[in-house]
């Protein structure tokens, strides 16, 4: 990122599903206020929202950092959850380890990671079983 990038930090609590998505909503509002192209805002917001939901469902919360400069938006989601055993499998549409309870809440259809890949220009997943997961989402800014 360039030196004059904006940086935002969010702590995502893991114990309250109704609060999942609050950080993504705040980021979306900020991006809108910055006058970023609506399609770019939507892409980043959807990817980040799915990531934030995953953090709450699977990893008992975590932390999100977002950097914005003239060219791109970079979001880093870091958790100390169980990690992803098989990333290739996790990327498949419809594959999910979410509980029935989570499905009852409207998530866990196995579309989270595929959606994150679909809406971001770059998706990097760095995960170690038993240690945690770092997801980096990059969306290029259209001018």
């Amino acid at each position: 990122m360039s030196e004059n990038s904006l940086h935002y930090h969010y702590v995502v609590p893991g114990d309250d599903f109704t609060r999942a998505g609050i950080a993504s909503s705040a980021v979306k509002k900020t991006l809108k206020q910055l006058g970023i192209y609506p399609e770019t805002v939507r892409k980043l917001s959807i990817s980040l929202f799915e990531g934030e939901i995953n953090m709450v469902i699977h990893a008992d919360g975590g932390e999100i950092d977002v950097w914005i400069d003239d060219e791109k938006i970079v979001a880093e989601l870091v958790d100390k959850g169980p990690g992803i055993e098989n990333i290739e499998l996790a990327m498949q549409e419809g594959w999910s380890t979410a509980s029935e309870q989570v499905r009852g809440l409207g998530f866990g259809a196995g579309m989270g990671l595929p959606n994150m890949k679909k809406y971001s220009d770059e998706l990097i997943i760095d995960s170690t079983v038993g240690v945690g997961t770092k997801v980096t989402l990059i969306v290029n800014i259209v001018k």
Partner: peptide
């Protein structure tokens, strides 16, 4: 009723 399915198509 599945939100990720909603999010899949703009």
């Amino acid at each position: 009723d599945m939100m990720s399915d909603v999010l899949a198509f703009v």
